[in-house]
């Protein structure tokens, strides 16, 4: 074999090895105790404006229509359940949706940020995904950054009059990818590489989680699209109840 071929074989074997050692790839929750205290606080503070906006919005909606209380709670539970169920992907690996992109399209990003932090608390306490000290960082990546990107792309695509299905797919999968990028940056900022600083370790974290997260983002996009299309065809009245309007 030439040198180049050897490199190729080595590269491929590393990729396949990486794909092999992912028996359980949870959505990227940063685990309890992983981040230094300063970062925990900083990310928490960054989430505050979004949470306050969401809180005020929810309170206003509730003052107008108290009925939304149970609806909101049910949607929160729905997102939790959807994200805790295994999704069908390549055999042997078990992966989960983040579910927040889906929520952002249906309910809007502000509301999802408040529901998101509650869901993350329950995921930490009931399922041990994520943690209480890393709650701020996880909220920022999953309940703020992801949903806002999803919502932004969704609205942008609608403005550009792109096919509705493609628009949902792009929004959900890119939102998911963005969540994964933000998490990688969060990890890299806390643990900069010894040889190249934060930038180098961002690349490392992105690389390590890429084999699961990229296919997962595509699967999540496909599933979200299918679910939304399905809902639009047979659950119009329920969608109207939660204030979801298809503007096409």
């Amino acid at each position: 074999m030439t040198r180049k071929q050897k490199k190729l074989v080595a590269g491929i074997s590393i990729c396949s090895l990486m794909a092999g050692i992912y028996p359980a790839a949870n959505a990227m929750h940063i685990m309890e105790g992983y981040l230094p205290v300063t970062f925990c606080i900083a990310w928490g503070v960054l989430c505050l404006p979004f949470l306050t906006a969401g809180f005020i919005k929810i309170r206003r909606t509730l003052a107008e229509t108290p009925r939304t209380m149970t609806l909101l709670a049910m949607s929160g539970a729905f997102i939790f359940v959807i994200s805790s169920l295994k999704i069908p992907s390549v055999t042997g690996s078990c992966s989960h949706m983040t579910g927040t992109g889906f929520g952002a399209i249906l309910f809007g990003p502000c509301v999802v940020s408040v529901l998101g932090i509650i869901i993350l608390v329950f995921q930490a306490v009931l399922l041990a995904h994520g943690g209480l000290t890393t709650l701020g960082a996880n909220t920022f990546s999953m309940a703020v950054a992801g949903p806002f990107v999803t919502y932004g792309i969704y609205k942008l695509c609608q403005k550009c009059k792109i096919n509705h299905g493609i628009c949902v797919f792009l929004a959900a999968s890119l939102g998911d990818l963005f969540t994964y990028c933000v998490t990688s940056v969060q990890l890299a900022l806390a643990y900069p590489s010894e040889t190249g600083g934060s930038a180098a370790s961002t690349v490392k974290f992105l690389g390590i989680f890429a084999p699961t997260q990229i296919p997962l983002a595509i699967i999540e996009g496909l599933l979200t699209t299918a679910i939304i299309v399905c809902l639009e065809s047979f659950a119009k009245s329920e969608l109207n109840l939660i204030g979801y309007k298809k503007e096409a």
Partner: peptide, 22 residues
């Protein structure tokens, strides 16, 4: 296909349930 069908029907059922609960 089943996952999509499950998710959508769970959504519809939970929205209805939310109304009844209220």
């Amino acid at each position: 296909k089943s996952f999509v069908a499950m998710a959508s029907s769970v959504f519809v059922l939970s929205v209805r349930q939310a109304g009844a609960q209220y």
